[in-house]
Nucleic acid binder design. Structure first.
Lengths: 337, 337
DNA sequence: GGAGAGGCCGAAATCGCTTGCAATTTCCGT
DNA sequence: ACGGAAATTGCAAGCGATTTCGGCCTCTCC
């Protein structure tokens, strides 16, 4: 390009001042319609490119929102992101993504970047072990934070997540109603609030069903497909195997089912399997996966909207809003359509 | 926060000028070691946050790189992204992600955003039908572009992708060597260069094997899991079914296998299935998926590096670099480990 | 003890846009 | 036609960091 086109270029070309041009381009009522059109035409013609850095330096509004999750490739977050994206697009906010992979230092450097860029807000599913102080740091520097999926005690910011304990209870209750008296839980750990909640729901469900929990029924682990796959071997090697399994997530369940199948055990026939999240793939899996819908899109939508509200000045809530989960009965639990 | 801490805040606190502070923080040799340390300590103490907008306004370097692909949830792109991320992190560049979902207008507005933010570069897998002019627009406005996965004729920018035709040929050759004489191809369309290349490779493979292509063997379609699942029905309904199937991608193959299984046809036993991409999941699928490794991480790494090179002044290449694919034989083709 | 050489540091101009306020023009009613 | 309200437009001061240049100090060495 020959020369950068800026406001003054347009102003000079039209014999106006940059002020008028600026106002016109932003559709201010202060400039006459004809002038505005003339200006817009000229801008288009000259190939003017709005310089957001300069603008935001002046206005301290960058139009950037950060989104930080464990891993976007995880379908669970993927669906949340999709609705966040839709909502943010509508507000003409650009969003910057970061996978922290539960690495605290990575998360910190991301937050730092956002601060440097003067981001308008941050929606995050905090990494394991994130101290409340990290959240405060952001908030104290005018970066509003909304938490999703996970909670942090004492952070004092608005959050959205599914009611994990209740949802997992739904799954266990269902299995109990099908007559199962020994139910394992695979995947997840105490390290995350989600892990703790879902395990609590599992235990509570057992108790409601009058079933005594056996420690060996609980196989902890990461939350991905591979981990589920690997857990299959552990499960298959169990003497006196449980007749049903609830999984921390669909991904774990899907991996587990691959593993069970390879071990000659048919999910949905030889053993009941239930997942959690109701990701797209659950429906077409073999067998279709019974699971708990966790309201991902609702979480995404609500969090984006909550952030936008805060940007527009509404005062912040400090509560965590729970989204109601829902059981989706399919074939993998042995019942179902 | 009480008051924003800026360079002058530090300068005042220490009785220095902002110039010295700026220089010190950027490790310039122009400032004495002791002074530098004093300044850095003060900055830390005061909670100074570097304002990139201001800096980039002055330097016209933003430290932002845009990455635009079809869909990050697609594991194929996911793996590319992972290596791009690693490489860019190393250069302390922030990256902004965009899923264009093959929507040209979405892609355009993303490019526009990057231009406004003064991004340093763009790595993209262009949406269907992206005209070369779109790429030129970016380049003309000082936004270097690197193309991945797909090519655009006449764009004249550097690109990286797997050698799709060759790779698909590998798959077909392998099936032929196993004795298959009727091979279907499922998924993909002519709309993308990838689709055309892979189909060409398929046809060439058939020809090498002395097999006459039958039009009904080609089931076109989108490139996701659902589409593969749906194609299973079409395939199963075929009179005189082919004994082997090559798929446009692993995702399609995986969905297809779910569909075949549901139809009572066992992949790897009743019909040979081969995927493309070698995503993580291929290895643990039931049966493990024979596929063609497409060098995703290499594409990611190379493209990021190429961009960085350009940022550092190396002149741009205009070629498309092909990455050599590799066949991974597993169970789904009926041979394999 | 004085001059020259370096090493450090400060003043000030810029980057491009926004915006409160002042200045100018247009337009009415009477 | 005239005064003043209404409608437009222009001025200029920032936003915060970078960077060139000139100037001040120390040191060193003769």
């Amino acid at each position: 390009m020959a020369q950068k086109v800026k406001l003054s270029t347009i102003a000079d070309a039209l014999g106006l001042s940059t002020a008028t041009v600026s106002l016109a381009l932003r559709d201010s009522p202060l400039v006459a319609d004809v002038t505005r059109e003339r200006i817009k035409d000229a801008a288009r013609e000259l190939g003017y490119i709005y310089n957001r850095r300069a603008a935001s330096l002046r206005t301290s509004r960058s139009g950037i929102v950060g989104v930080c999750v464990h891993d976007v490739m995880n379908p669970f977050y993927g669906e949340i992101l999709k609705s966040i994206e839709t909502e943010l697009d509508r507000q003409r906010q650009t969003f910057i993504l970061c996978n922290h992979h539960d690495d605290l230092s990575k998360q910190r450097s991301f937050v730092d970047t956002l601060l440097q860029l003067g981001a308008d807000g941050l929606i995050m599913s905090p990494a394991l072990g994130t101290p409340a102080a990290d959240i405060r740091l952001a908030e104290d520097n005018d970066l509003p934070v909304i938490l999703i999926a996970r909670t942090i005690d004492g952070a004092g910011v608005h959050g959205f997540r599914g009611d994990d304990a209740y949802g997992m209870g739904l799954a266990v209750d269902h299995l109990v109603s099908l007559g199962h008296r020994s139910i394992a839980m695979i995947g997840g750990t105490h390290a995350t609030s989600t892990g703790r909640e879902r395990e609590a729901g599992y235990l509570a469900g057992l108790e409601r069903g009058g079933i005594a929990f056996q420690p060996r029924w609980r196989i902890e682990g990461p939350r991905d497909r591979h981990s589920g796959f690997d857990s299959a071997a552990t499960f298959l090697a169990m003497p006196d195997r449980p007749t049903a399994i609830v999984c921390f997530s669909d991904l774990v369940a899907l991996g587990l089912m691959y593993g069970l199948a390879r071990g000659g055990v048919r999910p949905g026939i030889d053993v009941a399997v239930v997942g959690y999240d109701d990701i797209d793939e659950a429906e077409i899996a073999t067998p279709p996966l019974t699971t708990v819908s966790n309201g991902q899109s609702e979480v995404g939508e609500c969090s984006a909207r909550a952030l936008i509200d805060r940007l527009q000045g509404t005062t912040a809530s400090e509560q965590t809003t729970l989204i109601q989960p829902e059981l989706k009965v399919r074939r993998s639990c042995g019942a179902g359509a």
